[in-house]
């Protein structure tokens, strides 16, 4: 069976500074993957390359057996969607933002689905006519997530999307993404510094250091018995009972 996504020997440098170093991984079935590692190890760069917002220096990516070079970037991004840590609202109202996908692709706007997603993220009382610029940081982050989910991507690349959220909103996002993953059969690759969250939600862990994938492990195994010294050191930076904050 063809893998959903194959990442082969991705390398990337900024000037003389290597960011990714022959990163190789596969996604065989829809699952939740947490991408862990200290800051500056190439996690965000990896996600941006997977969404083709940046180009790798070497290596390739295959989606359902088709090389990235064979697929139009627009079609690629409809299937593999990146949600950045800093949520950018587009000019106009909340509704304008939610309608972006249907306007871009000239498809009917699924109002009931949008409402359902907004309700899942505790945004059911939000005035859709409100200017997007007037939303709070947490509201922007959640609206941006709903906007991306309306694309119904097969792979969601999430870059610390809960970092700026309060506990209640964070839990709502986690619940929505878990349900989404199960119901839609989607895959989420999630950068987080919240180890408790990673442990709670992920099926798999990708542990990255120095731009290389040091561990690709079952989530339970990774937290109970990490294979590498680097992963053990990384986990020890945060005691088990306090694994809800950044290890840095």
């Amino acid at each position: 069976m063809t893998n959903i996504l194959e990442i082969n020997q991705l390398s990337k440098s900024y000037g003389d500074k290597p960011i990714l170093n022959a990163f190789t991984a596969q996604i065989a079935k829809p699952e939740m993957i947490s991408l862990l590692g200290k800051s500056g190890q190439g996690k965000s760069t990896l996600l941006r390359i997977l969404c083709r917002l940046e180009a790798q220096d070497q290596g390739g990516i295959q989606f359902h057996g088709r090389s990235y070079e064979e697929v139009d970037p627009k079609e690629w991004r409809k299937k593999i969607c990146y949600v950045s840590q800093q949520s950018y609202m587009l000019p106009g109202s909340v509704e304008d933002n939610l309608r972006t996908v249907s306007q871009l692709h000239k498809t009917p706007f699924d109002m009931s689905f949008a409402k359902e997603l907004m309700t899942s993220l505790d945004l059911d009382h939000m005035d859709w006519n409100k200017k997007s610029a007037d939303l709070s940081g947490g509201e922007k982050q959640r609206v941006a997530l709903v906007r991306s989910l309306l694309l119904r991507p097969e792979i969601l690349l999430l870059d610390e999307v809960t970092a700026s959220l309060d506990m209640q909103s964070k839990q709502a996002v986690e619940k929505l993404l878990q349900d989404w993953q199960e119901q839609e059969g989607a895959t989420c690759v999630w950068i987080t510094h919240d180890l408790e969250q990673a442990q709670r939600l992920s099926h798999r862990i990708w542990f990255i250091e120095g731009g290389s994938l040091l561990e690709d492990n079952d989530s339970h195994d990774f937290f109970e018995n990490p294979r590498t010294e680097s992963a053990r050191n990384y986990l020890q930076l945060v005691p088990k009972e306090g694994r809800s904050s950044c290890p840095m």
Binding site: Y82, T100, H105
Partner: peptide
Amino acid sequence: KGEIETLLCLGASARQAIQD
């Protein structure tokens, strides 16, 4: 840049992403 990349992430064409 952030706004333009957001639109690209949602599958926009170059023209759509930079129209505003």
